[in-house]
Amino acid sequence: MRHGWLMVREGMYTVGLQYTRRDLYELLDVPKAEQGGDWLNGYHRHRNDYYVFCNVGMPGRTGHDYPNRWDGEKLIWHGKNRSNFEQQAIRNLVSGDYRVFVFYRDEDRAPFTFAGIGHAVPHRDSEFPVRIDWVFGSDEIAGAPVFTDEYAVGAQYTEGQRVQVLVNRYERDRNAREKCIRHHGVICCVCGFDFGERFGELGRGFIHVHHIVPVSEIGESYEVDPIKDLIPLCPNCHAMIHRRNPPLSVDELKVLM
């Protein structure tokens, strides 16, 4: 299991951390005789939960290349070849009666990253295979929140009121954030703070991701380089960088420390 981009516990799994199927067998105490099978075929029912495994941006080992992709924080997903909404497994996935643990990967033979417990938005006008959009983090499907840890200059927040945070698509690109973490790790690049070392399991994998180029300056044609444009910072250093507008550079903040 490896570090991910955000430390949120959903059941026994952590959003953003990576798991192999063997990890899941051990965590769930799956008997040897029940391993494999549907666990390897995209979606599997285990007791009263479902487990969805998908490739994003690449074909599967069977040669099928479904257009699975991230659209902001929404995962656009397609079922097995010739799947339809009359099939019992698909009906169960969209019923809301089961927890659906969604895992994805964008590299062949890599472990799967846990996306979270998915809420299904079915596209019943789709033919074969079925299309379901998975949203995460809210029971309010249409208004599922977008997680952001980038500071908005001049933002105002009122305690006790719901706040709508508007961010552009670059900031909520989950793949870019994950690639940043893979390259730079989860230790603050200014002060060296490691949440996992300090807080153990609770802090493992937690870190903010800072845009070196301010989000407000990114144009529609700009493509974020996860390694050059994003950098992991602890919340304290992240807040200090944004105490000035335009923000301090990482090197400037290091000098202040």
Rank of each mutant, 00 (worst) to 15 (best):
D65A: 13
K74H: 08
I117E: 04
R105H: 14
G63L: 12
T148F: 01
G137N: 07
Q88V: 13
D125C: 11
N68P: 02
K74W: 05
A142K: 15
D65Q: 09
N48W: 01
F112H: 09
P67A: 10
S126V: 04
S95R: 11
G79S: 04
A89M: 10
V56G: 01
G154M: 01
A115D: 03
P67V: 15
N68F: 02
C54L: 02
A110Y: 04
E86L: 15
H78V: 00
R131N: 13
E73F: 12
Q87T: 13
D49A: 03
C54Q: 01
R69Q: 13
W77C: 04
Q156C: 08
D133F: 01
P145C: 10
W70G: 06
F101N: 07
P122G: 14
Q156N: 07
N55V: 00
Y104A: 07
H123F: 14
P111K: 13
G137P: 05
Y98F: 07
Y50F: 08
R109G: 06
G118H: 09
P122T: 14
L93A: 05
V146H: 14
D49Y: 00
S126D: 12
G143K: 11
D139Q: 13
D97C: 12
R47Y: 03
G143V: 10
W70M: 11
K80W: 04
D97G: 13
V94H: 06
D71H: 10
Q87S: 12
F114R: 05
Y151R: 10
I132R: 14
D97Q: 10
G143H: 13
R131Y: 10
E107K: 11
F101T: 00
Q88C: 05
H46G: 03
N92L: 05
Y51T: 01
P145Y: 12
